[in-house]
C-alpha cells in the first residue's frame, strides 16, 4: 500500500510516528498550517512556524524517507485576533516556496465577519498564486458552516476542482459532492470520521474526488488511520486499485495541480531499479 497523507500536522508528532508511517507505506504527506493548540499572539510566531514547515519539518521527514509538503494560510480560528490577522501581508512570500502545494487551512471556525474576510482574501491569494485551496469546515454547526463555505468558494471564482473541503461527514458529503470540490475526510479515534463509516461513504458516493487523511496533530489522533482505512476498504471488498486511488492517486491528483509536488524516492530509502533516461522501458527483455 502506498500512502499519501494529505493532511497531517507532523510538527506535533514524534520520530516514532515517522518510522511507523514509513513502515505502513506513507511516502509523502502534506502538513497544513494551522493552530498550535495554544493561541499565537504575533505575526512572528506565524513566520517561525511557516519557516519550520518549509525547512526543518521537511528535513526531518526526509530522514525517514517521507516527502514533506505543506500548505500556508492564516487559519480561521486566529483570523479573529487582530494581532494575528496581519500575517496576511507576509503570506505571498511563503506561497512562492517550493513544497507549498496549497493555500490552507482556510475556512470557518465560528463564522464571524473577520473569518469571512480572511477566507475570501485567501481564496483570492490562491487564484493569484495558481495554487489549490484546502478548506477546513467548522466542528461546531458543521452543516450550516459547510453550506456557507461552498457559497464563499462559488463567489470567489476559484475552480471548484482546485478546492478540497475537509473534515466532512455523512451530513455534509452530499453538498460537497454536488459542488465539484474535492472531498476530504479526517479519520480519528473518537471524533470526526472512523474507518467503517468512511468505507460506507465510499460505497455510497464512489471514489472520485475522495481523499482520506489522518489529520493527526497534538490531540488524540492516529497517524496510521490512512493505512487502517485502506485495510478496512480491502476488508469490505474494494480492490487494491481503489485503495491506491483513494490513498495515493487522488491526493496526488489534487495537490499535483500546484506543480510543486516532489514524489521521487529519497536516496537511500528504496531499492532503485535500473532506469534509463528517467524511465524503465524494457529493451529486448521479452525475447
Amino acid at each position: 500500500m502506498r500512502i499519501f497523507d494529505p493532511h497531517i500536522h507532523m510538527t506535533s508528532r514524534t520520530t516514532d510516528d515517522y518510522e511507523a508511517m514509513f513502515a505502513a507505506g506513507v511516502r509523502a504527506l502534506v502538513e497544513p498550517s494551522f493552530w498550535l493548540g495554544q493561541p499565537r499572539t504575533s505575526v512572528a510566531s506565524f513566520t517561525d512556524y511557516f519557516d519550520s514547515l518549509i525547512g526543518w519539518e521537511r528535513f526531518r521527514a526526509a530522514q525517514f524517507g517521507i516527502r514533506h509538503h505543506c500548505t500556508i494560510a492564516l487559519n480561521p480560528k486566529e483570523a479573529n485576533d487582530p494581532r494575528c490577522a496581519e500575517v496576511l501581508g507576509v503570506l505571498p512570500r511563503y506561497l512562492a516556496k517550493d513544497g507549498v502545494v496549497a493555500v490552507g487551512e482556510v475556512g470557518y471556525d465560528s463564522m464571524t465577519p473577520e473569518e469571512d474576510t480572511a477566507f475570501a482574501t485567501q481564496l483570492a491569494l490562491a487564484v493569484e498564486h495558481e495554487l489549490p485551496a484546502l478548506v477546513h469546515t467548522p466542528h461546531r454547526d458543521k452543516l450550516a458552516g459547510t453550506k456557507r463555505t461552498l457559497d464563499v468558494v462559488r463567489e470567489s471564482g476559484i475552480d471548484p476542482g482546485r478546492v478540497i473541503v475537509d473534515h466532512l461527514n455523512e451530513p455534509t458529503v452530499g453538498l460537497v459532492a454536488e459542488s465539484g470540490c474535492w472531498m476530504g475526510f479526517s479519520i480519528y479515534p473518537d471524533t470526526k470520521m472512523d474507518e467503517k463509516r468512511m468505507v460506507a461513504i465510499l460505497q455510497e458516493y464512489g471514489t472520485d474526488r475522495m481523499v482520506v487523511n489522518s489529520a493527526a496533530d497534538w490531540g488524540r489522533s492516529d497517524p496510521l488511520k490512512t493505512y487502517k482505512t485502506g485495510l478496512a476498504m480491502l476488508d469490505a471488498g474494494f480492490a487494491e486499485s481503489d485503495v491506491d486511488k483513494v490513498l495515493w492517486r487522488n491526493p496526488v491528483g489534487f495537490y499535483g495541480q500546484s506543480d510543486r509536488l516532489v514524489l521521487d524516492e529519497l536516496p537511500g530509502f528504496a531499492p532503485s531499479p535500473q532506469t534509463f533516461a528517467g524511465n524503465s522501458v524494457l529493451r529486448g527483455g521479452g525475447q
Binding site: D51, R93, K97, D98
Partner: peptide, 8 residues
C-alpha cells in the same frame, strides 16, 4: 530570513 531550506 524568508528562505526555505534550499534557499537558505
Amino acid at each position: 530570513r524568508y528562505g526555505d531550506d534550499a534557499e537558505r
